[in-house]
Design a protein around this nucleic acid. Structure first.
Length: 591
RNA sequence: GGACCCGUGGUGUAGCUGGUUAACACGUCUCCCUGUCACGGAGAAGAUCGCCGGUUCGAGUCCGGUCGGGUCCGCCA
């Protein structure tokens, strides 16, 4: 061993011991006589001292040391003179009196400073290029630790409960739904491609048919969509899990305790409510204007269509007549918003599709300030305020449009008000399940066409009978999302395990039997040979880490992240390949 | 595909309505310093202000273009 101890562990108890430490030069303080060096490794920092009276040779060698050199120092642990102890360091009561110094590795002057108090952060491009240096910082070491321990805990949790981790293929096939696939050309079959899996969805369902019963995997997932600050380009990890012979509540009961543990162990947040509230999708959309509401604060939205359907304010009455809706959002304490706040909230709501943002502000003295009271009339205004239980100091916003737009707009306003009023408490984690998602929705691409709202593999509520008798838009799926503090962390479902029902669900969305056979042949065939009812979900590990820690950059989550344009500037990928490789794959570029 | 913002020594920034030696902090280098811990002191090097063009007597500053970077929208459960 090149060291007897790490740089983070020696204390007063160790005084007198002969030790060897190894690590990086964090900072050097040269007093001409004495030279102090903070020696740093993953575990911490220890001050090592070079005294010419103790070892002249080591002292003169130490004059040449520079930042980020890698050293081995042998010497004795000594107690610092009492008034010289550093209470900010775990090892601050001792130092090492060095008798022998070995330079294990020199360093060029680093392109940016690792001394966080002294230097401002260099820009992302340079830090990513030298990620191996940036990762030496305690903050990023901490990220690596949390990520590692969290994944270890997740594995232990599932193993204790009889789950089996199975690695599913990375070279898989293109899946027709969702994001853009990563394609991998096949050398043996020119013109054909593998696709990297967007999720192991089909494989895990096949594992259920295979009798694995309880499966999980820390699964790499691949999607070729444009990068964003909060989403890693190309690849990310999910805690993928699936169980046989279960109902929705069984999945919840497995997932909830784990999420509580992970939240409270790996963040400062306290979980607000257990069991997590179950909020049906329709209710979430109406009450919070979102399918991923932030429940750290109240601010419930209330439909008032009936109240205003015949009123003189045509914006409201017309919306109701056109089969739309009018909703009211009461913001407690919102009357203190300035003109500028209101203008910005109006801009936000227009951005979400509203034509405007009507409001009634109830001043502290009960006086109303509102551009619409004069149209509503005093009586109706009063009635509305009573309905939403408006008090002095409150502000009531209104949305009048088609139902979906009203929900979306007031949801965005609600969220922004919560932020502006400081209600997004970083010490709280408001988990909930959003349940009963619709199975179908109008297609966003083709006017009038019906398409899957979310996952086509979910079991429709009511099964075959519902598919045959109900309006598709009224059919709900046994599908649920897992939400924390306004972020969707996972979505999952009880799956459709019946070939008959599956053909029917796809038929409603416009897929023929032949198309289904072609695209999901393996699964349909498998379901013909005895498929257990099953379900599961797949929380994003990265997303979970970000949400519970309020981290907001992929840089904080990955050891080696891509940059804002999907490149790895350290490894220089993507890069060109040898023409011979292309030839072998039968790939030729035109142009 | 679209919108907005930013390019000034190694790093982070300043540089007002155009005016001649481009400033500051950290870092680097040299010298001094035996109790510092963001050590201190003295000094030095280091930038044709991303690039091209235009306006002007004069451009880091104004205008146009271009390249590079960042964020957002679209997209992504």
């Amino acid at each position: 061993m090149l060291r007897s101890n790490t740089c983070g562990e020696l204390t007063k108890e160790d005084v007198g011991k002969e030790v060897q430490l190894a690590g990086w030069v964090h900072i050097r303080r040269d007093h001409g006589g004495l030279i102090f060096i903070d020696l740093r490794d993953r575990y911490g920092m220890t001050q090592i001292k070079f005294d010419p009276e103790i070892n002249k040779e080591a002292h003169s060698a130490a004059e040449a040391l520079r930042s980020e050199w890698v050293l081995q120092a042998k010497g004795k642990v000594v107690e610092r003179p009492q008034e010289m102890a550093n209470k900010n360091m775990a090892t601050g009561e001792i130092e090492i009196e060095v008798t022998e110094l070995n330079v294990l590795s020199k360093s060029k002057t680093p392109p940016f400073s690792l001394n966080e108090e002294k230097a401002e952060e260099a820009n992302e491009a340079i830090r990513l290029k030298y990620r191996f240096i940036d990762l030496r910082r305690p903050k990023l070491q901490e990220m690596l630790r949390v990520r590692d321990e969290m994944i270890r805990d997740i594995r232990a949790y599932f193993h204790e409960r009889g789950f089996r981790e199975v690695q599913t293929p990375i070279l898989a096939n293109s899946s027709p739904e969702g994001a853009r696939d990563w394609l991998v050309p096949s050398r043996l079959y020119p013109g054909k491609f593998y696709a990297l899996p967007q999720a192991p969805q089909q494989f895990k369902q096949l594992l259920m048919v295979a009798g694995v019963d309880r499966y999980f995997q820390i699964a790499p997932c691949f999607r070729d969509e444009d990068p964003r600050m909060d989403r890693h380009y190309g690849e990310f990890y999910q805690l993928d899990m699936e169980m046989s012979f279960v109902e929705q509540e069984d999945i919840f009961n497995i997932m909830e305790p784990l999420m509580v543990d992970l939240t409270e162990k790996y963040s400062e947040k306290k979980v607000m409510q257990t069991p997590f509230p179950r909020v049906p999708w329709k209710e979430a959309m109406t009450k919070y204007g979102s399918d991923k509401p932030d429940l750290r604060f109240g601010f419930e939205i209330m439909p008032i269509s009936d109240l205003v359907k015949d009123c003189d304010f045509s914006v409201f009455s017309d919306a109701v007549k056109k089969e739309g809706a009018v909703h009211a959002l009461k913001i407690e304490g919102g009357a203190k918003f300035s003109r500028k706040d209101i203008d910005e909230l109006t801009a936000l709501s227009k951005n979400k599709g509203a034509k405007g943002l009507a409001y009634i502000s109830i001043k502290g003295n009960g006086e109303l300030s509102s551009p619409i009271v004069k149209f509503l009339g005093d009586d109706l205004s009063k009635k509305i305020i009573e309905t939403v239980d408006g008090k002095n100091g409150d502000l009531i916003f209104f949305g009048a449009d088609d139902w979906r737009t009203v929900c979306k707009v007031l949801g965005a306003v609600r969220d922004e008000c919560g932020k502006r009023l400081g209600l997004k408490d970083s010490k709280k984690a408001a988990w909930l399940w959003v349940t009963d998602f619709p199975m179908y929705d109008y297609s966003e691409i083709e006017e009038g066409k019906i398409d899957f709202a979310h996952n086509p593999f979910s079991m429709p509520q009511g099964g075959l009978e519902a598919l045959e008798t109900k309006n598709p838009l009224d059919i709900l799926a046994q599908q649920y999302d897992f939400v924390c503090n306004g972020y969707e962390l996972t979505s999952g479902a009880i799956r459709n395990h019946s070939p008959e029902i599956m053909y029917k669900t796809f038929a409603i969305a416009g897929y023929s039997k032949e198309e289904v056979d072609e695209k999901f042949g393996a699964m349909i065939r498998a379901f013909e040979y005895g498929a257990p009812p099953h379900g599961g979900n797949a929380p994003g590990i990265d997303r979970l880490l970000m949400v519970i820690n309020d981290w907001n950059s992929i840089r904080d989550i990955y050891a080696f992240p891509k940059d804002g344009q999907g490149r790895d500037v350290m490894m220089d990928s993507p890069s060109e390949v040898d023409p011979a490789q292309l030839k072998e794959l039968g790939i030729k570029f035109t142009k």
